[in-house]
């Protein structure tokens, strides 16, 4: 009886999760790799609040953070995950290069985690890079991502596998769509 109820809730939650991929991709494909249409790219940086002592994260650690598997920073502050709206190129990059999931898989992952209590808070969704920046500025435990061109001094850039965006071998790059 409990299992059935759980399944019903999961189905309802999945129905409510925004299907941005469908809107973004004319072909209706859910694979982010398929949606790439441009050969140009721009580094995508992981940013945290300036008071956050963390300077460096491994890609594995970053994956744990973005999947909600890690809930607190080393200083005890709760981690607040900041994401862009579904369908945004930056979000696609994170899903592809960090989480290794598509939107549906991420949705399922979080619904499951929240339901089971493994994940405490769902990601905060912000519609603009400015919003992301201001959110992270206001919340000491926040972590998010921005294009290099959207960066300013109000947030702190975190090295990934000890690499900064300008360094060779930096892995996170957002693909610019044609016409962008």
């Amino acid at each position: 009886m409990l299992r059935r109820l759980t399944k019903i809730l999961i189905v309802l939650a999945l129905a409510a999760w925004p299907h941005a991929d469908a809107a973004q991709s004319p072909a209706g494909s859910s694979d982010p790799l398929v949606a790439e249409q441009s050969s140009t790219s721009e580094p995508l940086v992981i940013v945290v609040n300036r008071s956050n002592p963390v300077d460096d994260l491994s890609l594995v650690e970053l994956r744990r953070v973005f999947l909600g598997n890690r809930s607190h920073w080393a200083n005890g502050r709760r981690i607040t995950l900041v994401m862009r709206d579904p369908g945004e190129p930056e979000r696609k990059t994170i899903l592809r290069d960090v989480c290794g999931m598509n939107e549906d898989q991420l949705k399922t992952h979080f619904l499951h985690g929240l339901f089971t209590g493994e994940i405490l808070v769902s990601p905060k969704i912000l519609s603009t890079p400015t919003g992301v920046r201001k959110f992270i500025f206001n919340v000491p435990g926040a972590i998010g991502y921005l294009r290099v061109s959207d960066l300013d001094d109000s947030v702190k850039v975190v090295r990934i596998d000890e690499l900064l965006p300008d360094d060779k071998g930096y892995k996170l790059h957002v693909q610019n769509q044609a016409g962008n």
Binding site: R78, T80, V121, K124, N138, V139, G141, A142
Partner: peptide, 11 residues
């Protein structure tokens, strides 16, 4: 106020 704002934004 900063703490309050942070808490609000954290949810």
């Amino acid at each position: 106020r900063d703490e309050v704002l942070a808490s609000i934004l954290e949810g």
